[in-house]
């Protein structure tokens, strides 16, 4: 039985520098290095396509302003603000 999806992460391969911090930090471990080299000659991070909880940790550890966009399933029972995401990440 498929797990109900809670979040989704999108990584821009033209912005990602392949540092891997998001891959290391992701709690459900749903990010990997892309096998293919990007035009910059690095292996960018890639979402495996499932398992994302939308917690936002990858976003905060990523040094690039726009490389990662995090989505959550909508409508959630309550509006999740950035502050709460932060708190969730702290826990």
């Amino acid at each position: 039985m498929a797990i109900e999806p809670r979040g989704r992460v999108q990584i821009d391969p033209n912005e990602c520098k392949g540092c891997g911090l998001c891959i290391d930090a992701c709690p459900p471990r749903c990010l990997v290095f892309e096998a293919e080299l990007s035009p910059y000659g690095v292996h960018p991070a890639r979402y495996v396509g499932s398992g994302c909880t939308g917690c936002g940790i990858c976003f905060y550890v990523c040094p690039e302003p726009g490389a990662i966009t995090v989505y959550r399933v909508s409508p959630p029972p309550k509006v999740i603000s950035a502050t709460e995401a932060g708190r969730a990440a702290t826990l």
Binding site: G7, G54, G66, T69, R72, P75, A82, A85
Partner: peptide, 15 residues
């Protein structure tokens, strides 16, 4: 199919 909304993305304070 679940609907998604953006929770974290590039800040509008960046160009």
């Amino acid at each position: 199919m679940a609907e998604y909304e953006v929770v974290h993305s590039k800040s509008p304070v960046f160009y």
